[in-house]
Design a protein around this nucleic acid. Structure first.
Length: 382
DNA sequence: ACTCTGTCTCAAGACGGG
DNA sequence: TTGAGACAGAGT
DNA sequence: CCCGTCC
């Protein structure tokens, strides 16, 4: 999941592509969210003292519903209209990664069985967390009752989120996952959820500014990400972020880099290109992912189905009726104020004038130089 | 001196009462 | 699981 | 802010 060290590269080389802002500045915006990723976080994080998940009387897990319900409310309160995107089938290339993960699971299961202390059991249990079909379906049911739209992506949710943003159906993709940039989402929002309450402001990453700032085409950027390390294939051992960027800059593509290394010109014997390296397929998964055409998608935010929502959450899942009812009124209120929401699409399709883009790129370049000069700066805290 | 690797750590949600 | 940050150690 | 509760 994600691209290793990409965040660090962007912060260092193109800090101006990351705009930091308050959640309020997204009022009226629509955003696409990777649902499966959220569910995973909730399942891991929403726990009780004893480390167990929240459940109803029948012992069915409710952590994911809890998280999804309140996080969604929180966004609605702030005038943000979320659309959730669920993962479809993972692409074949990911199966290597996935089998690795499942063999790790088997080991963890063994350790769990052998675990003696409660603490040890808890630790292993957390590692075993997986988003099941049921979790996904329950979350979809919840969203349906809340009147929040969702989409089931053909493959990767991130790719579909980016597609929605590209076609102006939403303003941005909201995710912690940097690989959303590889799908060329106009904007990526990080920390959208835990701003306000927590420390960090929301980071809004502008993909075009990243490309211009690094002076790479999208193809080169994707190649860079593959070399940094992605989910789809190996990277070249011994080549870290610094070298990867240098190589892409001087050679322009992985093809050329492979040629360069194999020809021996690099007078560097240690770098080993992975065998049968499927970087071309990986590249295509980023450049041309399987998605539903955004133009065919019509996102609708509807009033909540009050009675059924109470039945589902309170009767079935044992949520507090008082809280759910208050949630319902928050939903209705948020929906009303959202009617005159911003027209995300309009400004996206014809994004910025050339002048604006050029000015922004220039700023990025200048920033880059500045940053280079003050080597070893203490990381800005706040 | 620089870069990369490996190993360690920690936290991960949302909310509110005190 | 991820990601980040910190740090040690090895290779160039 | 800390720390317990939510289910």
């Amino acid at each position: 999941m994600g691209i290793k060290g990409l965040n660090a590269i962007i912060s260092e080389h193109v800090p101006s592509a990351i705009r930091k802002s308050d959640i309020k500045s997204f009022f009226g915006r629509k955003v696409a969210i990777d649902a499966s990723m959220s569910l995973y976080q909730f399942l891991i994080a929403v726990r009780q003292q004893d480390g167990g998940q929240l459940t109803n009387e029948a012992g069915e897990t409710t952590s994911h519903l809890m998280g999804m319900f309140y996080r969604t409310l929180r966004m609605i309160d702030n005038g943000i209209k979320p659309c959730y995107v669920f993962d479809g089938k993972p692409p074949d290339l990911k199966s290597h990664e996935l089998t690795k993960r499942s063999s790790r699971r088997v080991e963890t299961e063994k350790k769990l069985a052998e675990a003696t202390t409660e603490l040890e059991k808890m630790k292993q249990e957390r590692r075993l967390v997986k988003v099941s079909k049921e979790h996904n379906e329950e979350a979809q049911k919840l969203l349906g009752l809340m009147g929040i739209p969702y989409i089931i992506a053909p493959t990767e949710a991130e790719a579909q989120c980016a597609e929605l943003a590209k076609k102006g159906k939403v303003y941005a993709a909201a995710s912690e996952d940097m690989d959303t940039l590889c799908y060329r989402t106009p904007f990526l929002l990080r920390h959208l959820t835990f701003s306000e309450t927590k420390k960090e402001p929301i980071h809004e990453i502008d993909t075009e500014l990243v490309l211009r700032g690094l002076d790479l085409t999208i193809e080169q950027f994707v190649d860079l990400c593959i070399m940094l390390g992605c989910d789809y294939c190996e990277s070249i051992r011994g080549v870290g972020p610094v070298t990867a960027l240098k190589l892409i800059k001087t050679h322009g593509s992985i093809e050329k880099i492979v040629e360069f290394i194999e020809s021996g010109e690099s007078n560097n014997t240690k770098w080993k290109i992975p065998e049968d390296w499927p970087y071309k397929q990986a590249r295509m998964l980023f450049l041309d992912p399987e998605v539903i055409d955004g133009n065919e998608i019509n996102l609708k935010w509807s009033p909540p189905k009050e009675k059924e929502l109470i039945e589902y959450l309170c009767d079935d899942k044992k949520f507090s009726e008082e809280r759910v009812k208050s949630g319902i009124s928050r939903l209705k209120k948020g929906l009303k104020s959202g009617i005159q929401g911003r027209l995300d699409g309009f400004f996206q399709v014809v994004p910025k004038t050339k002048e604006q883009l050029a000015a922004a790129a220039k700023r990025a370049q200048e920033n880059k130089k500045l940053n280079k000069n003050k080597n070893k700066v203490t990381k800005g805290r706040r």
